[in-house]
Simulated scan of single mutants.
Amino acid sequence: MNTSHPIAENSIGSPTLEQHVTGPHWELPSISNATTYWRCTSCNRESIREEDLYRPTFHTADCEVHEC
């Protein structure tokens, strides 16, 4: 995680999570309204807000991060 982005107060904040959060990723410029996003490599969920990935409810039930 980028240290300039604070972890949400209700976050999981585990080393496993740090290993699975990747980004920012940039969408192709040919996509209208292209933006950056972050992804959990365990459950493949994506969000344009990095802090979403630090909330347990964001991940799928079978995600390694969710099980922490």
Rank of each mutant, 00 (worst) to 15 (best):
residue 27 E to M: 14
residue 18 E to Y: 09
residue 62 D to A: 02
residue 48 I to G: 11
residue 13 G to H: 12
residue 21 V to Q: 09
residue 37 Y to T: 01
residue 60 T to N: 01
residue 45 R to N: 07
residue 66 H to Q: 05
residue 57 T to H: 10
residue 42 S to D: 10
residue 47 S to F: 12
residue 48 I to C: 13
residue 33 N to Y: 13
residue 19 Q to K: 11
residue 65 V to T: 08
residue 60 T to W: 07
residue 48 I to L: 09
residue 27 E to I: 09
residue 13 G to A: 14
residue 10 N to I: 01
residue 22 T to I: 13
residue 50 E to K: 07
residue 49 R to Y: 08
residue 45 R to Y: 02
residue 42 S to A: 12
residue 54 Y to R: 10
residue 56 P to R: 11
residue 21 V to K: 07
residue 43 C to N: 06
residue 24 P to Q: 09
residue 68 C to N: 14
residue 36 T to D: 12
residue 34 A to Q: 13
residue 20 H to F: 10
residue 54 Y to Q: 10
residue 12 I to T: 08
residue 60 T to V: 01
residue 50 E to N: 03
residue 50 E to T: 00
residue 18 E to C: 03
residue 11 S to D: 10
residue 18 E to H: 11
residue 36 T to K: 14
residue 45 R to L: 08
residue 41 T to V: 10
residue 21 V to W: 12
residue 59 H to F: 05
residue 14 S to G: 11
residue 43 C to Q: 02
residue 38 W to A: 04
residue 46 E to F: 00
residue 13 G to R: 14
residue 62 D to I: 02
residue 65 V to F: 01
residue 67 E to Q: 13
residue 66 H to C: 10
residue 43 C to G: 01
residue 47 S to M: 06
residue 36 T to S: 13
residue 13 G to T: 08
residue 56 P to V: 04
residue 26 W to S: 15
residue 43 C to H: 00
residue 37 Y to W: 07
residue 56 P to W: 05
residue 51 E to T: 01
residue 50 E to M: 06
residue 27 E to W: 15
residue 51 E to G: 03
residue 66 H to M: 04
residue 21 V to D: 08
residue 68 C to P: 01
residue 12 I to W: 04
residue 51 E to C: 00
residue 57 T to Y: 06
residue 56 P to C: 07
residue 48 I to D: 14
residue 39 R to C: 05
residue 37 Y to H: 04
residue 68 C to A: 03
residue 49 R to G: 02
residue 32 S to H: 14
residue 13 G to Y: 06
residue 51 E to D: 04
residue 68 C to K: 04
residue 30 S to A: 15
